[in-house]
């Protein structure tokens, strides 16, 4: 049971990381949505499942609105990008990208025997942190997983999540950040 829980948790982290990647047809297909739907239903999040079903089936061209929303939330926007998906933007006094907390995150990757592929990758990008959690789970490092969540992920994710939940114009991203929150929040 423990092992299957672990590998499934790794799948979930990866699935969530994937869900925040730029929406394009290389991965955002019926297969993805049915997996998400099954997952939400399995979780008992029926209303959320229905809201995504509606927003995807409402319009023939559902992809472009998702792309525009992803760009507005996470890349560039006028008047301002809503929620840069980088930890130190929320953790440093001057909202700096690649701030001191990001360096610490990178050091933690190193300590666990990993490095980022891209030399200029910003270490505390949300998808990197989720992918890294998957790696920790796969290596059976549950203490490190919890440490990473407590010291690197949770200090900023709720602030990011609040911005997305408050500002997004698309159910999809509201559901995804709530899902991430559900799987990363501190256990009571």
């Amino acid at each position: 049971m423990a092992q299957s829980t672990s590998s499934n948790m790794a799948d979930i982290y990866r699935f969530l990381a994937q869900s925040l990647r730029y929406p394009d047809s290389s991965w955002l297909q019926a297969e993805y949505f049915s997996a998400l739907d099954a997952f939400l239903v399995g979780l008992g999040w029926d209303a959320e499942a229905a809201s995504i079903r509606r927003s995807i089936s409402e319009s023939a061209d559902w992809l472009e609105p998702l792309q525009v929303e992803h760009t507005r939330l996470f890349v560039n926007a006028v008047p301002a990008v809503i929620a840069p998906p980088y930890g130190s933007v929320y953790l440093s006094d001057d909202g700096m990208l690649y701030g001191p907390s990001a360096e610490k995150t990178k050091l933690f990757y190193h300590e666990q025997g990993f490095d980022l592929v891209g030399e200029a990758d910003i270490p505390d990008h949300l998808t990197f942190e989720l992918e890294f959690l998957a790696l920790l789970v796969e290596e059976g490092k549950s203490d490190e997983e919890e440490f990473f969540l407590a010291h690197h992920f949770r200090p900023w994710f709720p602030k990011f999540k609040a911005r997305v939940v408050c500002e997004t114009r698309h159910h999809f991203y509201r559901v995804i950040v709530n899902l991430i929150d559900f799987f990363t929040r501190e256990e009571m």
Partner: peptide, 13 residues
């Protein structure tokens, strides 16, 4: 419900 809910995920990768 775990198995059912996550079974489809790996295909997306």
């Amino acid at each position: 419900s775990l198995a059912a809910a996550t079974a489809a995920m790996s295909g997306c990768f």
